[in-house]
Simulated scan of single mutants.
Amino acid sequence: MKLPWRKTRPIPEAQIVLAAEVIAATWDTGEDGQVAALRRNGFDEGQARRLLAFLPIAFSRPILEELGIVDFDPNVTVSGPDGAFLNAKLMRQPEYVQGLKVARDHRSRGVMDHEVYKLIAFSSADLNAVDNALNEKADVTGATIATSLLDAKIALHLIR
């Protein structure tokens, strides 16, 4: 399944921080509740779904780098609605790009509530996998991370 090329505008840093705060405040409402809350705060459906998918990845990257991960696959693999796997470039996802910038800024100079940052960063499957490896005494120094998303709903909103 090939999705059409779509472009979106860059998201200002303040909007990423707002999105993170909304996600954290609605953490217990599940994905649909979070999407609804993000939409009430001015994000469209695609942005809301991409924020939920890509902020944990973006926020966890600086932590993973500090743990010794040196290479990140530039693509994300996503299970599509028909079960086929799709690939998309992370750097084409504006929520990921700006989320990564905000995460780096936060790690260096604290641009957002740290509890909100931690909640989202520590929900990352990538970070969870590395944490599990470290708990098993594995050496992750120099490792590579490849990211996959299993939620078929995000496939319809990727920028390809």
Results as ranks from 00 to 15, higher is better:
F54S: 05
F54K: 05
F54C: 15
L55M: 10
P56E: 04
I57H: 12
I57A: 11
A58L: 08
S60F: 08
S60H: 09
P62S: 10
P62I: 02
I63R: 01
L64H: 05
L64R: 14
E65A: 10
E65K: 12
E65D: 12
E65H: 07
E66R: 11
E66K: 15
E66V: 07
E66C: 05
E66Q: 14
G68Q: 10
I69S: 01
I69D: 04
I69L: 06
V70K: 09
D71R: 13
D71L: 06
D71A: 13
F72A: 13
F72Y: 15
F72L: 10
D73N: 13
D73R: 12
D73G: 14
P74W: 08
N75A: 07
N75Q: 09
N75F: 14
V76W: 05
T77H: 04
T77R: 13
T77Q: 08
V78A: 06
V78G: 03
V78R: 08
V78S: 06
V78T: 14
V78H: 05
S79A: 11
S79G: 06
S79R: 01
G80W: 00
G80H: 00
P81Y: 09
P81F: 14
P81W: 15
D82K: 11
G83Q: 09
G83D: 01
G83T: 04
A84S: 15
F85W: 01
F85K: 06
F85T: 05
F85Y: 04
L86K: 08
L86F: 07
N87Q: 00
N87W: 00
N87A: 07
A88V: 13
K89G: 08
K89H: 13
M91V: 04
R92T: 12
Q93D: 14
Q93T: 02
Q93L: 01
P94F: 01
E95P: 04
E95K: 07
E95A: 12
V97L: 06
V97F: 02
V97N: 05
Q98K: 15
Q98A: 03
Q98S: 03
G99Y: 12
L100E: 11
K101R: 12
K101H: 06
V102H: 13
V102F: 05
V102N: 03
A103F: 14
A103Q: 11
A103S: 06
R104E: 02
D105I: 04
D105M: 13
D105Q: 12
D105G: 00
R107L: 04
R107N: 00
R107P: 00
S108Y: 04
S108T: 09
R109N: 02
R109V: 06
G110P: 03
G110H: 10
G110D: 14
V111E: 12
M112T: 09
M112I: 13
D113C: 09
E115W: 01
E115Q: 12
E115I: 11
Y117E: 00
Y117M: 07
K118M: 02
L119M: 11
L119V: 08
L119P: 04
L119K: 15
I120P: 00
I120C: 02
I120R: 06
A121R: 09
A121C: 03
A121F: 12
F122D: 15
F122S: 12
F122W: 02
F122L: 02
F122V: 13
S123Y: 09
S123I: 03
S124T: 08
A125H: 05
A125E: 09
A125P: 02
D126C: 13
D126R: 05
L127T: 10
L127F: 11
L127P: 08
N128C: 03
